[in-house]
Design a protein around this nucleic acid. Structure first.
Length: 492
RNA sequence: GGCCCCGUCGCCAAGUGGUAAGGCAGAGGUCUGCAAAACCUCCAUCACCAGUUCGAAUCUGGUCGGGGCCUCCA
């Protein structure tokens, strides 16, 4: 089955056919670096990280470009507020962005260009647009003339007349049409600037993405991504600039991810209801955040809440518990040919399910990157593995052990495509436990002492005391697990 | 006001024409001194109404409810 993607431009799912067979050029709008990233940025970047990973998994040679917009009105304003150079400010938040993305386990794109390093390309495109009469200079500013581009608003599917009704030309702007947008802005005193044919100034928002994407991916490329909120005006204007300058189709597939909501409402800076990635990572393991974000389809809105994050933690823990148990089973049990002469129908069924796991996974991902469905299939593998491990009478059976190993390896491999299950299960679970202890203000030694006391009580058949200890710990979120090998504990 | 999206089990969430994946929670069972974990079994007819169709959660129209974009925003 071919990969199908939902294309904002056509409003439909389409078969994915890259311009050059086997190769994919993908550009994703990065961040404007003037503040810390929030969970919405995390979603966008994780979504496209997974798309990047899956395309490679599917055999494509992917050129993934994600930019930093490091010159912009907001950066300048924030820098002035803080009394620092805007370049310094941008540098600081590029560093913060890189840290956040690394913490979230993102693969590094093939190319991470910065707007300020491409002023030459930007000026060239603007000049080209002026030469083609698609843009005009006015008092040191340069504006794009949207009426000159017949395809304007084809991405956002709006109506020029109605759009115009709501806009007006601000004082000091030399726009001919209120819908026109700035390609170049003349520098005001104290602002950073570059020399240009129109005097000292800086690029407007949008043009940097046209310049960088076309420089690294060519005038036409396959995928352009970003959050839904970038459809208008940012991506609409990118199309106008790029196609206006080249006369060629700019992007084949436009992909947009949905928002992160808080209490069913869009999270945004203007509403003030946003959570930074750093704050969230103080409370939750990065992989939990990733897992949570991938349990919804990338185009759907997702509601951010403690309840949902805790559900995600429970779910991800289930994977790691099973992976850990599988690892232990595989190293503790030696295959012995005599231990399984006949295979039950149930075992057969589990084998079959493991057999088709990868196909199921790919089928889900081929349908517009349906990570939620893909994760559902992975949960079934977990159940299969636990069933194998529960079948004690066959614990040395080579067939079952081989199936278990196969399932474990597939789970890790396919999880890797989602950026999941990459940690050592034992370490991951220990980290989770110690984080839980810290939150509850508990100490490992204290718990282990109580477990020892309970062991003695149980040995003396003093079950009242044993149960009292268990209840006491349970109240603090510590769950005891008795087995033949002894008692272990975990955080709820 | 214009354009667009959504409304699936208590909660989260897939499914876009052939009679509802998965997770969490819940019920019963196996295991256990009792539990927990794990496993097994059970648990929805898809906001509402009217159509199209042999057949609709899936298509059309309407109603109600929620949200987004139109200004910086992932």
């Amino acid at each position: 089955m071919p990969l199908r993607v939902y294309n904002t431009l056509t409003g439909r799912k389409e078969d994915f056919e890259p311009i050059q067979p086997g190769k994919v050029g993908m550009y994703v709008c990065g961040v404007t670096v003037y503040d810390y990233c929030h969970i919405g940025h995390a979603r966008a970047n994780i979504v496209f990280d997974v798309i990047y990973r899956y395309l490679r998994f599917a055999g494509y040679d992917v050129n993934y470009v994600r930019n930093y917009t490091d010159v912009d009105d907001k950066i300048i304003r924030r820098a002035q507020e803080r009394g620092v150079e805007s370049r310094k400010l941008a540098e600081e938040f590029i560093g913060a962005f890189d840290e956040d993305m690394a913490a979230l386990g993102l693969d590094i794109p093939t190319c991470q260009p910065r707007a300020t390093e491409h002023i030459g390309q930007i000026v060239d495109i603007i000049q080209n647009l002026i030469d083609r009469k698609m843009a005009y200079e006015a008092g040191g500013d340069v504006y794009y003339s949207v009426e000159k581009f017949p395809g304007y608003l084809k991405l956002s599917k709006r109506n020029m007349e109605e759009m115009r009704a709501g806009t007006r030309i601000a004082p000091g702007e030399g726009k001919i049409n209120p819908m026109d947008f700035a390609l170049w802005k003349a520098a005001k005193p104290g602002e950073p600037f570059w020399e240009s044919p129109w005097g000292k100034g800086r690029p407007g928002w949008h043009i940097e993405c046209s310049a960088m994407s076309m420089k690294y991916l060519g005038e036409s490329f396959d995928i352009h991504g970003g959050g839904k909120d970038l459809i208008f005006p940012h991506h609409e204007n990118e199309i106008a600039q790029s196609e206006g300058a080249t006369g060629k189709p700019f992007v084949k597939y436009w992909l947009h991810n949905g928002f992160v909501n808080v209490n069913q409402e869009k999270m945004s800076k203007s509403l003030g209801n946003f959570f930074t990635i750093r704050d969230i990572l103080k409370k939750y393991d990065p992989e939990i955040v990733r897992f949570f974000l991938l349990t919804a389809h990338y185009r759907s809105p997702i509601d951010f809440s403690d309840k949902n994050l805790e559900d995600a933690r429970t779910g991800l823990t289930r994977f790691y518990e099973t992976l850990k148990a599988a690892g232990e089973t595989l190293s503790n049990h030696v295959p012995d040919d005599t231990s399984c002469v006949t295979l039950t129908p149930e075992a057969r069924e589990i084998f079959d399910r493991i057999e088709v796991l990868e196909d199921r996974f790919s089928e889900a991902m081929d349908d517009d990157f349906n990570t939620a469905l893909a994760i559902g299939h992975l949960f079934e593998a977990v159940r299969g593995m636990n069933r194998i491990m529960g079948a004690e009478e066959y614990s040395e059976c080579p067939l079952l052990l081989a199936a278990l190993r196969d399932a474990r390896d597939k789970l890790v491999k396919l999880g890797g495509v989602l950026g999941l299950f990459g940690a050592d299960p034992t370490l991951w679970l220990e980290r989770k436990a110690s984080r839980g202890l810290q939150e509850k203000g508990l100490e490992k030694e204290r718990i282990e002492a109580l477990i020892e006391e309970r062991r003695t009580a149980r040995a003396n058949r003093d079950f009242a005391r044993a149960d009292a200890i268990r209840d006491e710990l349970a109240e603090k979120g510590v769950i005891l697990l008795d087995s033949k090998e002894g008692t272990t504990w975990r955080m709820k």
